[in-house]
């Protein structure tokens, strides 16, 4: 069992989830409530990772973060090192790859809040932030939880993007799915089976917990 890879995968999943809370929630709120004509374009961009092969996404992220691109050069100046084949680069790729798994459930949950309640909040003098934190977020907790768990579980099992952007550096970018791939390549089927079973168990448990919690109605 490659415990180092498992720890790295858990760290990556947790960090991805945290970044998606910070970036995904405002984006989801905008998608849920905006009436802009170009909203479908943003929705399509968010959903792209669902249909794009991970290698294609990984390739573009690799190119974008590489030293020859303006973005990559800028990131290098900020972080002091190149992002491809580092944990930071891997995190950026994971956030992009898991974006729809968080943003879509968040957005659907926010949109399902009764608009009359939002109007009542505005008429009570509350601004958008107060309305979001006091009403929208508590009333859409099930969708938010689903988004968080899906993005966590999805990052835990990702392979293609990780391989393209992170490579296979033990302790830095070697995640558990890469470790399984390595174990199979070196014909260590026993270790691969144990790691796979652990990943399967963790993913299954997380999903069962999520779906059980979603049935609990806090605010009927």
């Amino acid at each position: 069992m490659d415990w180092q890879a498992l720890a790295l995968s858990l760290k990556l999943s947790f960090c991805t989830m945290v970044v998606l809370v910070v970036l995904g929630m405002p984006l989801a709120a905008w998608l849920a409530f905006s009436k802009r004509r170009w909203k479908p374009i943003v929705e399509a961009i968010v959903a792209l990772p669902l249909v794009l092969p991970p290698t294609v996404l990984g390739f573009y992220v690799l190119m974008a973060l590489g030293p020859s691109s303006p973005l990559g050069a800028c990131c290098e100046r900020i972080f002091g090192h190149r992002l491809p084949f580092t944990f930071s680069g891997l995190l950026i790729a994971s956030v992009l790859y898991s974006l729809p798994f968080a943003v879509q459930p968040f957005s659907a949950a926010f949109a399902s809040v009764d608009p009359r309640i939002l109007e009542a909040s505005a008429c009570s003098g509350a601004g958008p932030l107060k309305t979001f934190f006091r009403l929208i977020l508590p009333l859409s907790w099930a969708g938010v939880l689903t988004g968080l768990v899906l993005s966590f579980a999805h990052t835990l099992g990702e392979f293609g993007v990780v391989l393209m952007v992170g490579g296979n550096i033990p302790g830095a970018t070697r995640t558990v799915s890469i470790a399984i791939y390595d174990q199979v390549q070196s014909m260590d089927y026993g270790a691969a089976a144990r790691t796979s079973a652990l990943l399967l168990g963790v993913s299954f448990t997380v999903l069962v917990l999520t779906y059980s919690l979603r049935k609990v109605r806090l605010f009927p």
Binding site: I117, A120, A122, C123, G125, A126, G127, L218, F219
Partner: peptide, 30 residues
């Protein structure tokens, strides 16, 4: 001007109470 700047009270036909807040929480909200 958005509703927040008009300083008025609105009673909706279906009340639109905040389901996650108690009676005291609803009253204290504004």
């Amino acid at each position: 001007q958005p509703p927040q700047r008009r300083t008025l009270g609105f009673v909706f036909q279906d009340y639109a109470l905040f389901p996650n807040l108690s009676v005291a929480g609803n009253l204290a909200y504004p």
